[in-house]
Design a protein around this nucleic acid. Structure first.
Lengths: 230, 230
DNA sequence: AAGGGAATGTCAATGAATTGACATTATTTT
DNA sequence: AAAATAATGTCAATTCATTGACATTCCCTT
């Protein structure tokens, strides 16, 4: 049982259309990083084994959900015993694709772009910061984390030559759509979008939005709601 | 119909426990900022009226969901006519609490904290940047957006004297829990948490997490998933 | 002023996600 | 080695969210 592979992502042909079985819901995917984080901490504390019930107590989700979630990938536990922390941690990391490296560039060297470049704690998770681009002539050549800000004109060549698969968009909304389209054309696979617009991209290109102001508005709602007796 | 108030958030007494009726689900709340954004853009384009079907086409959600969502708050439309863009925009803004001002401070003047301070486009939504704090002696007194970085020792007095209700946490995870606890003690109402930990706070204190690395991991999963024929 | 048409508000049906229950299977103890 | 114990994997039940359908209401035209 310990070595169940990721199972049942069988692909059937129905008529002309390819349909995949057992697509994992985004609700489940969205929880994986949190599992990963808690398991990493447990591992660092030297804890070797854990039951879904214990994890439930720590993480404040039901034990049933934990087991259900892991079972989407075949189950990583041993009945009567529980889960081996390190093994589970590794497996979730694999599912998340953290053992492959991803080369990323940042588009937009403003405050946020610079902060993300420096913040990049992400390196140890396989996300390698390869370059940062901006159109503002004042920023060109400026060193950010030992990397000179490059002109957007160089972007295309750079992406092709350096096998970049992720672009971080930290530019104003006005130009975001246009830049995203270009990035897709030159072969990017995923966009981490901090611009406050919805990007429309072809199927197969992944977009993950971080809409900070949406998040702040949600906070405001919940504060007011509570204050008004909700 | 145009002036339906937010209705039915009646509060009943059942035994000793206060239970509120019609709590709006977080799924709905999470969509409000996006509605707000699209309506703002429509308004800026000078569009005065819109039907749920038209909005559905633009936003790529079902018309049914749009109507259902708005009806959680009593409905803002007129049958046979649709919704008045400006009115709807205003009402959603009110629901989100954007016409009250919120005074916020940033805890942690590192890259991200500084970026958020400068980024603060949020001002026009009523989120007023009042101060930034850090323990690093090298940062003390540094000017960030015309505001000197203050020592964390000054935090308590400052919060009380300046009616601060939101704290933005951009400090390392190690100290986040401790600082959060202190913030709660001195009367903060909401925490916008960028630290990579789950904060445990008393009921009534709102926490909105922005776990950037979780978001990036999700992106990685979806990229890999697609590449492996998912 | 009255009637036709349009689009909301709302109810019912469906679908998705979460929780609960337990049979099964591995581990541990005796 | 066998029995007792523990905790998973999984199925069923429930709850929550989304979609569909349509009666009702209001606007707009004639």
């Amino acid at each position: 049982m310990l070595f169940n592979a990721i199972r049942d992502i069988a692909v059937y042909e129905i008529g002309d259309v390819q349909v995949e079985n057992k697509e994992i819901s985004q609700a489940v995917i969205g929880r994986l990083p949190r599992y990963f984080r808690f398991l990493g901490e447990l591992k660092d504390e030297g804890i070797e084994r854990i039951s879904s019930q214990e994890l439930s107590d720590i993480m404040q989700v039901t034990a049933s959900q934990i087991r259900q979630d892991f079972n989407n990938f075949g189950g990583f536990g041993q009945q009567g015993y529980g889960y081996k922390v390190e093994y589970l941690y590794e497996e979730i990391g694999k599912i998340l694709g953290l053992y492959k490296t991803h080369n990323l560039i940042i588009i937009g060297a403003g405050n946020l772009g610079q902060a993300l470049a420096n913040y990049m704690n992400f390196e140890r998770r396989g996300f390698l910061f390869k370059g940062i681009f901006d159109n503002n002539p004042e920023l060109l050549g400026k060193k950010i984390r030992n990397m000179e800000v490059k002109s957007m004109d160089e972007m295309e060549t750079f992406v092709r030559e350096n096998d970049i698969d992720i672009a971080v968009l930290t530019i104003p909304k006005a130009s975001a759509a246009e830049v995203a389209e270009k990035l897709v054309d030159i072969g990017i696979r995923g966009i981490w979008n901090f611009a406050h617009v919805d990007l429309s991209v072809p199927r197969g290109i992944q977009v993950e939005n971080v809409h900070l102001s949406d998040s702040l508005m949600k906070l405001a709602y919940n504060i007011n709601q509570f204050e008004n007796g909700g």
